[in-house]
Amino acid sequence: MQANNLKSPATKSGFFSRWIGGQRAWETNLSLLTMALPGILLLFVFAYLPMFGIIIAFKDYRFVDGILGSAWVGMENFRFLFGTDTAFRITRNTLVMNSIFIATTTIGALLVAILMNEVYQSRMSKYYQTMLFFPYFISWVIASYFVFAFLNGSTGLANQIIERFGGDPPSWYRTPEAWPLVLTVAHIWNSIGFSSIVYLAGILGISPELFEAAKIDGAGKAAQIRYITLPMLYPLIIILVLLAIGRIFHADFGLFFFVPRDTPMLYSTTDVIDTFVYRSLVQLGNISMAAAAGFYQSTVGFVLVITANWVVRRINRDYSLF
């Protein structure tokens, strides 16, 4: 780029052309912009145009008055979120559970991707990959039946096993302490196939020559993973974690609502922002309040991800999101 700058002196004078970096760079940038254009437009139409609707969160939206015609009410719609002592609990549960999910899924998915890569030549690998994807097709509603069949007090398999070994079986649907674990296992089970495949694709994209060279240098499997596989995956890991942080205030409603069967006795660990909002508004159907909750979740996620991105930028500019 520097070279370009020197070679093509002011063919297009002024700030703009200097910013772009000369004729050749101008053409390159133009081509790239053209290429990006359909995507930019689609996002503009389907994501940015409706975004003006965010103002609903600050209005008393009455259908008959329309979005613009409804009255402004300031922060009134946010009040229900923070008005009770539940606010702290749902925020904590959402943050803690999502943090656990991000950590366990990232590590688990990396592990599975690496294992899968080790046996990639084997005919079996195809079946593993397929099987790991099965849970993705099982909705949380259906999964809740199996969790119930496994954990329920009278006929549940889990308690039969515990009894067999002389343990004292807990009443799972009355024991909130057990649920962070249950939900984490359910989440890993559901997402591992999906997440690991991204990393597997990343590993498969690494040039085999790198591994060959390492082998010649006498690096064992562990060393190869540590010095080649993981460093090559860093950008991908960081981007995925950053994206997950952006949505850390949004909980997977199906998981937290259906799997614990909306049991009040479990709320102390299973109630998250999304389930709370659902429960609060199910009778009212208040669109403004729902919009306010969504806006709150997005804004906090936005702040968090900007911070995280700033930290990443300080460490390595290339890895940052923007």
Partner: peptide
């Protein structure tokens, strides 16, 4: 990149869409 990323966080909700 920011333009793209931003759409992941904020949405206008169902009614305007």
């Amino acid at each position: 990149s920011f333009y793209v990323f931003f759409t992941l966080l904020f949405s206008g909700g169902m009614v305007p869409f």
